[in-house]
Structures are given as C-alpha cells and as structure tokens.
C-alpha cells in the first residue's frame, strides 16, 4: 500500500512563511515612513499657505517688492526675498562651478592615487562642516576682511549678501566636486586611451573626451548644488542680514526666502497669525523651487546618461 503524501506545507514551514510575510510587511512600513514624511511636508505647507492667501492677495504676494510681513501695517511682496535667494544662489554657483569642476578634473584625471587619498578626505571634511560654522566664518572673517575691503560699490556694513553667497559657494563646492568626479570616473578608460592613441595630451582628453561624456552627471551635480544653495538658511540668517530689500548691489544686506523662514521661526509667531502663516507660504514657494531643481537633476541623469558597457 502506498502511504499518502501530504503536499501541504508542514507546520514548521507554514510558521516560517508567516514570519517571512510579517517581516516583509514591517520592512515595507519602514520604507513607507519616507513617503509619509513627504506627504506630511506637503500637507504642513499647503494648509496654512491656503489660509494665508485667504488674507493676502496672491497678486500682491507674487508681484510686490515690499516684504514686511511682521510689521504693522504688513506688506507681503515676496519678490524682494525671492531675488535675495537668487543672488545668494547665483553667487554661490559662480564660486562653486569653476572651483568644483577644477577640483573634480584634478582628482579624476591628474592626481596620483597617493595625492588623491589625501585630498579627497580633506574635501569630505569641508563637506561635513556645519552651516552655523560657515555662518560664523562669513560674518567674522569673509565679510570684514574680504568683502568690506575689496567690494568697490558702496559701503559694506556688518552684513552682506555677497559674503553669504561666497561662503555658501564654499559650502556647496565639495558637493559639485565629488558628484562631478563620480561622473568623470565612470567614463570608461577605453575612450581616454583612444584619444591618447590619436595624439591628444592629458588636458585635451579631459576637456574634449571626459567632460562631454560626463556632462549629464556634471549638470545634475550643479543643479543639486544650486538647490542646496537656495535652501541654505543659517548662513543667510547670520551673514546676509534681515532687511528684506530689492537691491542690485550684493554688497548691501538682504534677506533670502530661507533666511526669512528662519528669522520668523525664531520670533515664535502666534499660531494662526498672518505672520505665522507667511512662514508656510514662503516655505511652500521654497519647497516648490528646490523640488523642481531636484527633479530636474534626477531627470537629467536618467535621460542623458551615456551608458557604457
């Protein structure tokens, strides 16, 4: 007689499968926390921003240049702090793009492994300096010793947009350098060797072979760095000043969007007041601007990446 064989999983196997499913669920929930965070950010920004625009004319917000939300009577023209952010962001990029790319070319194409193993950790240290320290550096060293002495237009006071922008540029320099270097390092050696065989020297290989091949990664690095510069709060708060004004002279003081958020946040506004809600309206604008930059950066990499096998 043939004994009957059960094709059902044994009790032990069934328990293991159950454990497996529970653990998978717990891990998935942990991954879900990141999505919940994003949703909470959007909800946190949108609800007070909507009630803000119930009190304040949207056209005044988007078109006005007078930003005094905590004064009486208040003015809500966001243009002046938006331009403040653009100033700090552009100055930072003017500093960080050439210097960061120079550093990346050096590390990826020129440096010997020994030099690289010293320079790269030092750049990582620079990347790890807290922003409050950069703020001190801007206020205590760069503004009085460099900007105030060398800037030719007008008088430079205790605070200046220029000092904040320059130091923000130094802050994002390691980001540009290390991401651009990653992009250059992923260019296959065969391309370089081909160019050398045709009689190119090291500089020509770097600029005409490696640079175009790594361009998508480099652009993504720059866009990501721009987003970090525009969102930087503490440096702007300490070094740029707190006077929101539309000015063409970066030697003057000014306020950025992130700087205003920090400034108003410190002031402990009463919940529900228009001043409190203005934090969220500006926060929503800042979030949208930086998110567009982040998505642009991710898309540039996906779309234009040259895949070498």
């Amino acid at each position: 007689m043939i004994p009957e064989i059960s094709l059902q999983p044994s009790v032990g196997v069934r328990r293991r499968m159950l454990v497996e499913r529970v653990i998978k669920g717990v891990l998935a929930a942990m991954a879900g926390v990141t999505v919940v965070t994003s949703v909470l950010i959007v909800v946190a920004l949108v609800r007070p921003a909507i009630s803000f625009f119930g009190d304040v004319n949207f056209l005044e917000f988007i078109g006005g240049v007078d930003w005094k939300p905590l004064f009486k009577p208040p003015h809500f023209g966001v243009w002046s702090i938006f331009v403040g952010s653009l100033w700090v962001g552009s100055i930072a990029l003017v500093v960080a793009i050439p210097l960061g790319l120079g550093a990346a070319f050096f590390l990826s194409e020129y440096a010997s492994p020994r030099v690289r193993s010293i320079v790269k950790p030092v750049l990582e240290v620079l990347a790890g300096i807290p922003t409050v320290v950069f703020g001190f550096f801007a206020l205590n060293f760069v503004n009085p010793n460099l900007v105030a002495k060398l800037w030719p237009v007008g008088d430079v006071g205790t605070y200046s947009v220029l000092a904040a922008g320059l130091v923000t540029g130094i802050m994002i320099l390691p980001t540009v350098a290390s991401l651009a270097e990653d992009a250059m390092a992923s260019v296959p050696d065969a391309l370089r060797q081909g160019a050398y065989a045709l009689g190119s020297n090291r500089r020509e290989v770097s600029t005409s072979v490696v640079f175009p091949a790594a361009l998508s990664g480099i652009v993504a690095a720059v866009v990501l760095a721009a987003s970090r510069a525009i969102g930087e709060t503490t440096i702007a708060l300490l070094a740029a000043g707190s006077k929101a004004q539309l000015s063409g002279n970066p030697g003057e003081e000014g306020q950025t969007m992130a700087g205003f958020i920090g400034f108003a946040g410190i002031g402990d506004q009463a919940t529900g007041s228009t001043g409190y809600q203005s934090i969220f309206a500006v926060g929503a604008l800042l979030f949208v601007v930086t998110m567009l930059l982040n998505i642009a950066s991710i898309r540039v990499v996906r779309r234009f990446r040259e895949v070498y096998e």
Binding site: I41, L224, E232, T233, G265, T271, F280, M291, N294, I298
Partner: peptide, 27 residues
C-alpha cells in the same frame, strides 16, 4: 515611487523639515 521619493527627500532644504516639525510636532 518610494525610491524616487527617497532621492528627492534627501535634497529637501533642512529648514522645510523645521516647518513640518513646527506644524505637526511642536504645535
């Protein structure tokens, strides 16, 4: 979606997390 979201969240300015905390956790 989770993957894209993690990438994007890593680049959100830190002060925005402060706003989130102000709205939901502190108050």
């Amino acid at each position: 979606l989770i993957e894209l979201n993690v990438q994007n969240l890593a680049a959100v300015p830190s002060v925005v997390f402060g706003i989130l905390g102000l709205a939901f956790i502190k108050r």
